[in-house]
Design a protein around this nucleic acid. Sequence first.
RNA 1: GUGAGCGUAGCUCAGCUGGUUAGAGCGCCGGUCUGUGGCACCGGAGGCCGGGGGUUCGAAUCACCUCGUUCACCCCA
Length: 422
Amino acid sequence: MDKRTAPRGTFDILPTDSNRWLALERAVDELCARFGYGEIRTPIFESTDVFVRTIGEGTDIVDKEMYTFTDRGGRSMTLRPEFTAPTARAALEHNLLQNLPLKVYYRGPIFRYERPQKGRYRQSHQWGAECFGVAGPQADAEIIALGMELIRRETLADVELGINSMGCDVCRPAYREAVVAHLKDNATTLSENSRERLSRNPLRVLDSKDPSDRAVIATAPRVDSYLCDACREHFTAVRALLASMGITPTVDPKIVRGLDYYTRTVFEMSAGGLGTQNALCGGGRYDGLIAAMGGPATPAVGLAMGMERLLMAAGPRRAESLNGRPRTEVAFVALDEPSARSLVPILHAFRRAGISADMDYTLRKVDKQIRAAGQQGARVAVILGNDELARGEATVQDLTTRERQRVKLIELEHDVKERLAR
RNA sequence: GUGAGCGUAGCUCAGCUGGUUAGAGCGCCGGUCUGUGGCACCGGAGGCCGGGGGUUCGAAUCACCUCGUUCACCCCA
């Protein structure tokens, strides 16, 4: 077929659906503001190394999922596959970290070159929040609470919150070594994939769903027995704070997260009904990232949530059946060309007065026009034909009661406003 | 990147083991009602049957290739 289609793994959001997106975006804006986070907008593409250096080689994102291209100046650029690295880059570039704590949120499209399936696209949308400069567990708890609250407001689905601690620079190396040793002892039973990962990113083997891997993982050393006192205390405190807000996470040692920059707290929120891609939200603490990017040592926590998946988990909302057009309060109906001409300035005056009003310029039959007006949720129709025009009047019909009345054009706006106020 | 299922009107789908001009429901447009809505009845527009070459007298239908899509693996939002 020669018909043009949206690129693979992308989709159009049509007027019939965009209402839901708009509502979700407003909810995100409103909730983040309530939690004290200000919006940050970064470019949709960055220098490739912004992602490679932060997300880390050996991760799927960097190794095979990035939309990378060379610009006309010969620079390597990449469409953002996530928001944390660009946000950190922007914070550093504009010296935002001199005034801590810094709390920012974002929303928008991200790009990953993957085979599409349920809940996974090449262009998808995320919102998320980052809190820089707070080492204490309150920040972890706040970020998690923010995510849970947004989900609670938007969906009725049961959401599971899994949480884990990955330790810090002090304790993670020992744990990592123990894991590597264990995996090497069992290397023969590991999947090919995991064996390869053993040298590059061993902790992620713990995440594997491969059955034979699972057996090895089950007997692997657990993080909690390797955490240093500070990390242990932090982890306990985060959970206690969550509990005080009525949030009870499940401790899940399998959560290690795919990206290199996480330290201490990592978490995931998942929901049913999403197929196998059931992660709604993921995040954690990344105390080392800013320093690794050349900035001042700055603790940070963040989360990212997939908006498509959130909408999926929320299920279909009641259809507004307005054909994807915004609700019109007042419909202007012209019966002929002269009437239409006289209605234009009146329509404009209504709009300037803050009333959503529309007119069917096709001048089709009255009954069709009125029917369409009703479908768009109009409460009042203002009808004008040569009869009315000659007398300087309009017929005003209340579309709920069907009652009709002649009104002087001079009093029209006042009359209609009164009707709408009822 | 791998595997499986599916591609017929705007949407949801019929079209049996290949047989002339391709169907329904919903939606859309129009009429019955020279100027007044949601009902009813009648009519109409809209399809390179995803694309390509094959087999055949003949393909929407069969085999192959390709593209797209869906789901799963991998991994993640």
